[in-house]
Design a protein around this nucleic acid. Structure first.
Lengths: 211, 211
DNA sequence: GCGATGTGACCGACGGGTAAATTACCTGAC
DNA sequence: GTCAGGTAATTTACCCGTCGGTCACATCGC
């Protein structure tokens, strides 16, 4: 038990402890979802008491917002960086995934924070996530638009569905990665490359609807 | 829990009412998730009282299990039918999606029941869903294995990741479909065909790792 | 009347949130 | 140096709303 003596104004700086709580909470929220994660669980995992969490973050949503701000900043920045490097189409998607693998290697659960269906869709925390999610989705849309327009598709609904699908693909890889802790970022990138190549080279039959 | 010795000889037949409750509950569970759906909500939506739900299904998990059994049966049967028609590779995936669109046109939320992260992972209901999920995943694996082996990939981890990704893609289309009620099954199938064709024809750059 | 069918009202557990007590640290008079 | 008093940090113990689950009573066809 971490029932160590209290540390007054000296000892552990408040900023460090906040960071530790956010780290632990991000794992919990990202793993079990917002709704299924109790503040008491987070506090126990961080080695402190529940009221202290409230003293730092005000509410469960406040804690959530802090996690989202960190996650959103980390991811949006990285994805924007890839967007500026001039790649396009499928390659841009693969590079984005590779960058995310590299950034999240020791924080794999973070991606799920921004796509947690159990999180409330209103309130101040929702605005934080909406901001970052919109930024990330805009970048995804940009990439998808580029890819599809190259194939002559400009229909808004097609683009919208493809954006959703792309985000779902990222979800899937993150889920799989979380379930396979021994796989490092480089191995994941190589895996994605293999799978993409396999898909593109499929010639077992043209995709056509039945009669 | 053992059902009371009620023969349901009068009034609205019990079977009909059970079916209606399952229908309503499937929408609720599939839309909001198991954890966020209250039994009282389901009862109200079905126009009956909460104790009656318990009289029929014994517990919230019992109700959930009934929804899962219907959803699982519906989907597994349909997917198995497609698996037997001899298609392969990407085309098999598209045909599976088309079949799912056709079956779920008026029950779009049903797919989410089997992939609900907020559902408990133990208990009798979990065994029901595990059974069907395993059946569906086995079919997905079969299709993926076929697709990847054609490209020379047999690595177990690659296959496992691709299966997860495929299920994620289906998730994404279902989510998008639920958010676009005006799109019918045929429109969805055509959309998938367009998007697949666009992906396969991407030549904006070969996906290769750095130098 | 009587049993099947259904309901309003209630119970207990759980989790977010808070007030009061407790601990640890700092300050300053002696 | 040290010890009383003040203050900030932290915890223990509690409140309260929600929700799964149950019970005593109402209703209805025979």
């Amino acid at each position: 038990m971490a029932a160590r003596p209290n540390a007054g104004t000296k000892g552990v700086p408040r900023a460090d402890r906040e960071q530790e709580i956010v780290r632990v909470a991000s794992i919990a929220f990202g793993t079990d979802g917002f709704a299924a994660t109790g503040v008491a669980d987070v506090a126990r995992a961080a080695g402190i008491s529940k009221p202290l969490v409230y003293s730092y973050f005000g509410s469960k949503e406040g804690l959530h917002a802090a996690c989202l701000a960190e996650a959103g900043g980390l991811l949006a920045e990285e994805i924007e960086r890839v967007a500026r490097d001039g790649s396009a189409g499928v390659e841009r998607g693969v590079r984005t995934l590779a960058a995310m693998f590299a950034v999240l290697d020791d924080r794999r659960h973070v991606w799920r924070l921004l796509r947690d269906r159990t999180a409330p869709d209103d309130g101040p925390a929702a605005e934080v996530v909406a901001q970052y999610a919109a930024r990330i989705e805009a970048l995804a849309r940009e990439g998808v638009l580029e890819l599809l327009s190259g194939a002559g598709i400009t229909d808004e609904l097609d683009v919208s569905a493809m954006v959703r699908t792309w985000l779902g693909i990222v979800d899937s890889f993150m889920d799989w990665w979380v379930a396979h802790p021994d796989q490092d970022a480089e191995a994941m990138t190589q895996r994605v490359l293999r799978l993409v190549a396999a898909l593109v080279s499929d010639h077992t039959g043209r995709a056509q609807p039945g009669p």
